[in-house]
Computed example of a mutant assay.
Amino acid sequence: MESRPYTIDTLIEIMARLRDPNSGCPWDLKQSWQSIIPHTLEEAYEVADAIHQAVDSQDFSEVKLELGDLLFQVIFYSQFAKEQGDFEFADVVDGVCEKLIRRHPHVFADIDFADEAAIKANWEAEKSKERAIKLQANSVLDDVPKALPALSRAQKLQKRCANVGFDWGDAWGPYHKVKEEWAEVGQAMHQQDGEEIAEEIGDLLFAVVNLARHQGLDAEDLLHQANRKFETRFRAVEQLAKADGKRLQDMSLEAMDALWEKVKQRLKT
């Protein structure tokens, strides 16, 4: 094994040793394509979480470690493929390099586009060609990953439809759709129809994602930010109550709401 600083070749060699039938790690030898999918998803979320924390703290050391863990997942899958004789890690690198070069002719082929919108249109056209070749798809929605978080998948579904012209002309279309779906949620609640309430709330969420997309925003990221804001405020409420010698569970909703408003004002200033 080579000495530090290690390289990508070292990581590939480590993976091969871990999967060696005679001297490898029992846990790694038991793994399969399907068994490490949950680990891959977990590592991706840990990268995202580390980045969010790093942006606040300006300490990116944890991001480096989490990216390494995510890279190892790619090496793991590549090792499975190598053992089956399908492909190797070098083929993965070759494939992504070819795709990026082809999708960026304005950078690598001296082709000029009028503006950023034209560049984006070319990118989507290239992706459409790839999907047609890969899947001979019956629908533009055929290869939208089902394992995506629901908000992200909703946004990707909407984007695919927009690429073929099935979309609102501007952001006011989804804005009014949100108002329409909001009213339908209220109607379902008045009727006390549980199934209808659930369906209408789902429609409302989908419409809100569409509004975010039309504003050039990522719905998943927006909800993540909203979660962080709520968590920050609620932790501050807990601290105020504790400083007063009180427990939230012993306080009235009105008293907790008063603390909430105090926290909101503090954070604003």
Results as ranks from 00 to 15, higher is better:
A236R: 12
Q215H: 15
D69E: 08
R235W: 00
F166T: 09
V93T: 07
L259S: 10
L135A: 08
V209Q: 07
R4C: 11
E181Q: 15
P5S: 08
E184M: 04
N122R: 12
I119W: 06
L211A: 00
M1R: 09
L253M: 07
R131A: 13
D28F: 05
I12A: 15
F234Q: 06
H224T: 00
N227E: 01
E88H: 10
D142M: 06
Q187H: 09
C97D: 05
D167I: 10
P21K: 14
E254A: 15
E42W: 01
S128A: 10
K268L: 04
A90M: 11
S61H: 04
K64V: 14
D20V: 06
A243Q: 12
D28S: 08
L135Q: 02
D142Y: 05
A219R: 09
E238R: 12
T40W: 06
L18V: 02
E62L: 08
V96F: 11
Q158M: 10
H106D: 06
L151M: 11
Q84P: 01
Q158Y: 15
V237C: 15
F76C: 10
K120N: 04
F76R: 13
G68C: 06
L29G: 06
D28P: 01
E116H: 00
L222S: 00
M1G: 13
Q73N: 08
S139Q: 09
D221T: 09
A150V: 09
T40R: 03
M251Q: 11
K120S: 09
D244V: 03
G216V: 04
S61E: 09
S35V: 00
F76Q: 04
D112W: 06
D143V: 11
K246D: 01
A226Q: 01
R213G: 02
D59N: 15
T269K: 14
V185T: 06
F234Y: 14
R213I: 03
K134R: 14
A121W: 04
D56C: 03
V209L: 03
F113L: 03
D28H: 06
Q155T: 08
L70I: 00
A236T: 01
S252V: 04
R160F: 01
L71A: 14
L157Q: 13
L71F: 10
